[in-house]
Amino acid sequence: MEINKMKQWLDMAKQFHQGQFWDSVFDQDYTKQVMEQFTNPAVSVNQAAAAPSFPRAEVLKSNREIVILIDLPGVRKEEVELSIMDGSLYIKGVSNQSYPDLQVVQAERFKGEFERAIPLPDKVGSGAKISAKFDNGMLEIRIPRPQRPRENIRIE
């Protein structure tokens, strides 16, 4: 029985030595992305980690409305698209390089195309008067909350 274990160990060590072991352990695309972070100085570790949550958002609500604040530093309002579907606010756009003619030495801010769904706390009616205002890199979206009329309950 000990000989069988030793043989298994040797087979595994052989695979490890040939590089096949790590190929099977790690997903190829993920490994490539991680390695690119270390070999390409223009891509930072923080940028890759932040990409799924870009842009940063805050959802607030009162009795009358839902307010969504979205940070979009360096993004022009013409490069942003907003839509509402299935109880979520969808934001899509592009964050371009501020100085495309300069070489990047260190990059910590997200650049490129982005798309994100932000779940809303209430369903939004199709006729809702939604407003959006873009000022100094901050997008503010206001969605009126459906007002439910007060309903009296008859006591028997």
Rank of each mutant, 00 (worst) to 15 (best):
Q97P: 08
Q97T: 07
K92Q: 06
D86W: 02
N4E: 09
Q37A: 15
Q147Y: 05
V34G: 07
F134K: 01
D23S: 14
D27S: 09
E36L: 15
V75T: 03
S131K: 08
E140R: 14
Q20R: 12
W22Q: 12
G74H: 07
R76V: 00
F26C: 13
L139W: 02
V75Q: 03
P144G: 10
I66E: 02
F38Y: 11
F114W: 13
Q18A: 05
M138S: 11
I155F: 15
D71A: 10
L89W: 04
M12P: 10
E113S: 03
E36R: 15
L82T: 00
A132H: 08
P73K: 03
A48Y: 02
F38K: 14
E115H: 02
D122V: 07
N46W: 04
N46V: 04
V105F: 14
D23P: 11
F38V: 07
E108Q: 15
L102V: 07
S62Q: 04
Y90G: 01
F114L: 11
R116F: 00
D122T: 05
G19I: 06
K77T: 00
T39C: 08
T31N: 13
G112A: 08
Q37F: 13
D27M: 08
L102H: 10
Q18F: 08
V45L: 13
Q28R: 12
D135V: 03
I143P: 00
N152R: 14
K14C: 02
V94G: 03
A132V: 07
R109G: 06
A49R: 06
Q28K: 15
Q106K: 14
L139N: 01
P119S: 00
K7F: 11
R148F: 00
V124S: 03
Q15M: 07
E78M: 09
V94E: 04
K123A: 06
K7G: 08
P121A: 01
Q28M: 13
M6K: 12
S88Q: 05
A132M: 14
G19W: 08
D135A: 09
A57C: 13
R116G: 03
F54A: 03
G137F: 10
R150V: 06
E2P: 11
V75C: 05
Q106F: 13
E156R: 15
Q15G: 01
H17A: 05
D27T: 02
K14I: 02
D11I: 10
V67F: 02
